[in-house]
């Protein structure tokens, strides 16, 4: 009685003995691919279940049953859902998201540009917020329960409590309207110079930084404090290390895993959750593209945006997982 899985199990076991790290990472990768596929099913089914119809919306007043049927036939909507799903999936795997129903142009082309804009914004927001959050978290721990810690806490709580559109409008009123030092709207277009671009995204970047900063800062603070109460921190203190040196050298490496996790969540938010900010600042990114597509029921675009958002989210979380695994000396250096 040969078990067909026995060979796989044996191979897995051997790998676990020799390269536990490789095995864990390969497993995470496989899991991510599986997850992404499940999400693709959900997105397709969800979009299918949405009320409203592209043909109806497109034709408006002139929607006769015949005209609607014609459009549906043109788009291939009269075919069974499974056929359409696998056709779509087959295209997606090759990087082809189909054509937009509204414009007829390939979705991939449009999305590349929009995604680039969104990533541009997210990159600057991340480059500012991550070091700032981790740094402020360390400062807060250093001055724990004293004035600087309290100020950092109150400000970050205030920032996290205000809705992002409100922060956005506040910044616009203050910096663009009253002081006139910032650019609004933040629309970017081809042929813009670098300095113009940077100036255009200043306000949306500031908004995003304020929104994600608090969460990351507070998690950094909590993670380091939990590490600080461990016996090896006492050892460091009794070796005569200064407080800040002890935090950087002994607390930080052990706080990496939880911090990276929350950083990844927030980076994902910077890409996925920018919809509101992009709309407020009239910024031509993925978020606004998706919102526009939803209003006209342009399903290929909605599906593509949804899937890309999901992929970014899964990818960043996977990276966080892998970093946490690699940061664990028990896995990096097996006995």
């Amino acid at each position: 009685m040969a078990n067909p899985l026995a060979g796989v199990h044996a191979a897995r076991h051997r790998l676990k003995e020799s390269h536990p790290l490789t095995l864990l990472i390969v497993e995470r990768l496989a899991l991510s691919v599986l997850l992404l596929w499940a999400v693709s099913v959900l997105i397709f089914a969800g979009v299918e279940a949405l009320p409203g119809d592209f043909a109806q919306t497109y034709l408006g007043q002139s929607a006769t049953p015949q005209a609607i049927a014609n459009i549906r036939a043109d788009l291939g909507l009269d075919r069974p859902i499974t056929t359409r799903y696998f056709e779509w999936l087959g295209g997606v795997v090759q990087g082809d998201f189909g054509n937009s129903w509204a414009s007829g142009a390939p979705v991939s082309e449009q999305i590349t540009k929009r995604l680039g804009n969104s990533l541009f914004l997210a990159f600057f927001a991340a480059a500012i917020s991550v070091p700032l959050a981790v740094g402020l978290g360390m400062v807060a721990v250093h001055y724990r329960n004293r004035i600087p810690d309290r100020i950092i806490n109150i400000l970050s709580l205030a920032a996290i409590s205000l809705p992002e559109f409100f922060i956005g409008y506040l910044l616009i009123v203050f910096f663009a309207v009253q002081l006139g030092v910032a650019t609004f709207p933040s629309t970017v277009y081809d042929g813009m110079s670098w300095s113009e671009r940077i100036s255009a995204i200043t306000l949306p970047t500031a908004t995003l930084v304020l929104v994600v900063l608090a969460h990351m800062m507070r998690m950094t603070r909590a993670a380091i404090i939990s590490v600080m109460s461990s016996a090896y921190m006492e050892t460091a203190e009794l070796k005569g290390l200064g407080a800040f040196k002890a935090i950087v050298k002994h607390a930080a490496p052990n706080a990496i895993a939880p911090i990276v996790n929350v950083v990844a969540l927030n980076l994902a938010y910077l890409v996925v959750g920018v919809v509101v900010v992009e709309v407020v600042f009239v910024y031509p990114g993925m978020g606004q593209y998706m919102v526009d597509a939803v209003t006209v029921r342009d399903m290929p675009v909605v599906q593509a945006c949804g899937l890309i958002f999901a992929a970014v989210y899964i990818l960043l979380n996977m990276v966080a997982d892998i970093v946490a695994i690699v940061a664990n000396p028990r896995l990096r250096h097996p006995r």
């Binding site: 016996a231 090896y232 050892t235 009794l238 070796k239 028990r330």
Partner: peptide, 30 residues
């Protein structure tokens, strides 16, 4: 002044060495 004594002139060995070593660094470095 206290820091200059700790870990130089007076050292401490704890009951639980397992908890008192930092898991992230090599023993030699510590």
């Amino acid at each position: 002044g206290i820091r200059s004594i700790r870990g130089a002139r007076v050292c401490y060995v704890a009951q639980s060495a397992a908890a008192s070593f930092n898991p992230a660094h090599k023993l030699g470095d510590q």
